[in-house]
Amino acid sequence: PEAADLRALSRHLYEAYLKYFPLTKAKARAILSGKTADNAPFVIHDMKSLLEGEQFINCKQIPTPEHQQQMSALTVAHGGLSGAHQGLECNILDAVELRFFHSCQSRSAEAVREVTEFAKSIPGFIELDLNDQVTLLKYGVIEVLIIMMAPLMNKDGTLIAYGQIFMTREFLKSLRKPFCQMLEPKFEFSVKFNTLELDDSDMALFLAVVILSGDRPGLLNVKPIEQLQETVLHALELQLKLNHPDSLQLFAKLLQKMTDLRQIVTDHVHLIQLLKKSEMEMCLHPLLQEIIKDLY
C-alpha cells in the first residue's frame, strides 16, 4: 500500500507538471532533434538574426489561449517595464543585450508564476505557514528554473520563447560582459544534468524535492516541510528504480545536483547585482526584484 501511495503521488505531480509547464522535456527534445511535425525553430546566431528573431517572435502567438491570456495580463500588470522595453526598441544595436535581457525577465516572471502554481499542487504545500511558502519559493524558484532550462539546452545552444527559437551558445558567449557570462554556467550544468536522462515524470518529482528544502534561511516551521520532502523523496527513489532500472546510483547523483545548483544561483544573483550597478537603464521586473533581494 505504501508503494501504491507513492506511485499515486508521482502521477499527481506529473499531471500538475504537464498542466503548468507548457514546454515539456519530451517536446523540447523532439524540437532539438528535428523530429517535430511543425517548422524547425528560428535560429539566432548573430546580431542580425537576433533582430530578425525579435520580429519573428512578435508575429507569433503564445502556445495556448490560457497562457496567452495570462501572459498578456502579466505584461499589462508590468506596464512600467513594457514601456521601457518599447522605448529601448528604438535604440541602436548597443542596447540589444539589454533588450534581450528584458525579454528574458518577462519570460522568467511568467515562469515564476508557473512554478508557484506547481508548488501549490504539491500535497500539503498550501497547508504550510504562508511565510514559509514564500520563503520556499523565494529560495527555490531560481533553482527550479535552472533545472528546467536543462531540457531546452544542448551543448550548442538553447531553445527559448517556448521552443520557437534556438539561440546558439557561441552567440550568447559573444555578447558583451556581463551578459555573456550569464548563461554559460547553465550550459555547463545542463550538459552534465542531461546525461542523467531524466524524463518529465522524473523531473516533476525532482522539482518538488527542490522546492521542499527544509534548510532555506528564515523558515519558521521546518518539520512539516521536511516531512513533506521525505515523502516526495521516497516517491522519487521508487520512480527512478522503476523508470531507470539499469542506471546505478541515479538517485544519489540527482541529489548531488542540488548542491551544485546553490552555487550556480549564488553566482547568478551576483551577476544580476553587478548588472544593476553597471547598466543604468536596466530595470528589474518587480517580481524578480522581490526574489533576488537579500537572497544570498
Binding site: 515564476v112 508564476r113 502554481e117 504562508l130 520563503t135 517580481l287
Partner: peptide
Amino acid sequence: LKEKHKILHQLLQNSTSPVDL
C-alpha cells in the same frame, strides 16, 4: 516577509489568476 514579497504572496494566495500589481 509578507510585506517584502507582495507579488509572491499574491501568487500564492490567488488561484491561477495573474498578478495585479
